[in-house]
Amino acid sequence: MSYPTSVRLFEVGARDGLQNEKEVIPTEIKIELIERLVEAGVKAIETGSFVSPKWVPQMADTADVMAKVTRYDDVIFSVLTPNMKGYEGAVSSKADEIEIFSGASEIFSQKNINCSIDESLERFKPVVEAAKKDGLPVRASVSCAFGSPFGEEITPAMVADVSKKLFDMGAYEVSIADTIGVGTPIRTKLVLDAVANVIPLDVIGVHFHDTYGQALANLHAALEVGITRLDSSVAGLGGCPYAPGATGNVATEDIVYMLDGMGIESGIDLNKLVKTAWFISDFLGRPPVSSVAKALKNKLD
């Protein structure tokens, strides 16, 4: 079996991971989390989102986070931009790239952004066109690619269709997301093979939730397919407010431990990463869900 020699981890803990926390996280804590992740070697970080504070109050300080966090030539800070107003926020905050999203589930799309899948894609066209004009890279994701929280059948062909539309629109990367964590390794390969038939393999990313404990197995299957773009969340933070039953993202430190054991380079210092997982978990007042963070807690330098 041939595996990639290296991968790029896209850290979502500071946005996707924290957005559902009921307690408002101070801006300074978010900044320290991001700084610690960079110190651990993370090169791509989702730092926030420019959405209405009415819907996602936890992200109301994204502009402040972007203004105060230290910038690095080799680190990409991404922000989620659901519309032109969000895009303007991204530009004014000097984001390195923007993120857009659609879904393979019609019901999820309606509950998440109050429109159909096709309508969501139409809404993003002016955002992508503006980004192209401004030379700002666009990253995209496809939610509910392995199953719907509302019982719909999601076929690999449906996922491939949305992925191609996002790629053709101008996204340099399309992350295939198991929003409710129902995927299995065989299902993962079927979906990724379908997507790879319509867009280049090297632009495909994956985003797994560990609801049923399948995330690492699914990531391993993705590596076997040749995927090198992996989303993750420090301490396993996260979930989705519009997808019932969706628990946390796969933990970054669990992935890095697996990659280290496979001889696949991630560029991330596991020791520093685990310390970062405990930093944010201690603040939140609960242990990380990550098995690796728990196992290494008493072995840290």
Rank of each mutant, 00 (worst) to 15 (best):
I29C: 06
V91R: 13
S93R: 11
G263D: 00
E119A: 03
S6V: 09
T184P: 12
H207E: 02
V162D: 00
A95P: 03
G48S: 14
S116R: 06
T211G: 12
A217Q: 14
A251E: 01
K165A: 08
S116I: 08
V250L: 09
S141H: 12
A140F: 15
M262K: 04
T5L: 13
A131P: 13
G170I: 05
K22V: 15
N298C: 11
E35P: 00
E119W: 10
V159F: 11
Y242Q: 03
L259G: 03
E265L: 05
A295S: 10
K22L: 15
P126H: 10
S78P: 05
D282A: 09
D254K: 11
V289S: 15
V234G: 02
I100A: 03
V56C: 13
I113W: 07
V91K: 13
L216P: 07
V142H: 05
V69R: 00
S163V: 05
G135C: 06
P149S: 04
E46T: 05
A194E: 13
D210L: 05
K189S: 14
A145L: 06
A293G: 10
C115W: 04
P287H: 11
S281C: 07
E129C: 07
P82Q: 02
K125C: 02
E23A: 12
L9R: 06
D64Q: 15
P26K: 03
A14G: 05
F146C: 08
V12P: 04
E224H: 15
